[in-house]
Design a protein around this nucleic acid. Structure first.
Length: 156
DNA sequence: GCCAACGTTGGC
DNA sequence: GCCAACGTTGGC
């Protein structure tokens, strides 16, 4: 069996929510705008079929709200060359793009979103990157154990 | 809106 | 290569 990898990706719902993803053409979107090297490097290791926890940050409450999956591996983020884009990077050359994006596709939204507060209280999730103090990574790895436990929680 | 934590930039 | 200043993230 092919081993999948698991991830968590953050988005502010006021900018792009899981409902926006579900309504996107083909229920798919390109994850542009990542401007952090660590997050970019994680995206570069993603494979088609990798599973993603969709997280709403700056939300009330902040929560894991559903699942998406990777449908296209990392390729240059076009917004880095667009002067009018908020994420324009004058230091990036088309011959040597600094920033990548992946495409993700909607899988499902949880009927009961898992609030950050509840995740924090769960001893099984103590080691989650999301819950580490000061952690701001917008793209982060999730272990198989964490993934399975979160899916289990989402059923209740 | 506040602010702690973190990442990046640039002067030296 | 250090580190102060600045900008951003994101919970509260």
């Amino acid at each position: 069996m092919v081993s999948r990898h698991y991830w968590l990706m953050k988005s502010e719902p006021s900018t792009f929510s899981i409902d926006d993803l579900a309504r996107s053409p083909g229920q798919t979107t390109s994850w542009d705008g990542v401007r952090n090297y660590q997050a970019r490097n994680f995206m570069r290791t993603m494979a088609v079929g990798d599973q993603v926890l969709f997280y709403h940050s700056n939300a009330d409450p902040p929560a894991v709200v559903g699942i998406a999956e990777v449908v296209r591996i990392a390729y240059p983020d076009s917004t880095q060359f667009d002067k009018k884009d908020k994420h324009y990077d004058p230091n990036s050359k088309p011959s040597e793009p600094k920033w990548d994006m992946v495409d993700i596709k909607y899988v499902r939204a949880f009927s009961n979103p898992l609030a950050l507060d509840d995740l924090r209280r769960d001893p099984k999730l103590k080691a989650m990157v999301l819950l580490k103090k000061g952690s701001r990574l917008s793209v982060q790895p999730v272990t198989l154990g964490e993934w399975q436990h979160i899916l289990h929680l989402a059923k209740h």
